[in-house]
């Protein structure tokens, strides 16, 4: 009896030591959590999460100050990714934050008075133009954050949803009578 106990205790100590050693030896210096979260966020820099940009929101998530369902541009997908990154359950969007189709800003070039306010609002420098000159949005750089819409004194900026073209078209999830429920079951897993 005593022998058995001693053996067990011995094994426990040895294994514990091995584990401890391994933890030190194979310690991976990962990116700090904030960077990992930031990598998942869509970088729209829109502030819809209530933070002045994606990095601040990432920092808030990392410190536990913010929920993971505050980023509409990221969509359900983004919530899923954050949830699996942080090992928590995904939570649906709340009533006030809802994802919308990805859009780009378009400046009505006839109305624009060249005030440069939108340029100063754009978080990614996607608007070009000089004072008193017409401004244009560089569509490929625009993240669709809408930050330029409000500052415009003549309301000449509209958000246009990106339309489906052959170049950005995607194959849809196959939907067939019987497999549909199997699919939802699979997706829920």
């Amino acid at each position: 009896m005593l022998n058995a106990l001693l053996v067990m205790a011995g094994i426990a100590i040895v294994l514990g030591a091995v584990l401890g050693y391994a933890a030190i030896k194979f310690h991976v210096e990962g990116n700090p959590l904030v960077d990992k979260i930031d990598a998942v966020l869509p970088q729209t820099q829109c502030g819809q999460c209530g933070f002045p940009g994606c990095k601040p929101y990432a920092t808030a998530i990392a410190s536990g100050e913010a929920n993971i369902n505050k980023c509409p541009p990221g969509g359900e997908e983004g919530i899923q990714k954050l949830a699996s990154l942080l090992g928590v359950d995904p939570i649906p969007f709340g009533g006030d934050t809802q994802p919308k189709p990805k859009s780009v800003a378009i400046i009505d070039e006839n109305t624009c008075i060249g005030c440069t306010l939108c340029i100063q609002a754009c978080p990614v420098d996607a608007i070009v133009g000089a004072a008193k000159q017409m401004h244009t949005v560089v569509a490929s750089e625009c993240t669709g954050c809408e930050l330029c819409v409000a500052p415009c004194p003549v309301d000449c900026i509209i958000m246009k949803p990106i339309e489906e073209k052959i170049s950005n078209w995607k194959w849809k999830y196959p939907v067939y009578a019987l497999t549909e429920s199997a699919a939802t079951a699979g997706a829920a897993r």
């Binding site: 006030d96 100063q120 500052p151």
Partner: peptide, 18 residues
């Protein structure tokens, strides 16, 4: 003024989403 407007833009969008 610019600073204010930019700031209010942030608030504005969050509000409007509300």
């Amino acid at each position: 003024h610019i600073r204010e407007v930019a700031q209010s833009a942030v608030e504005h969008t969050t509000e409007r989403n509300g």
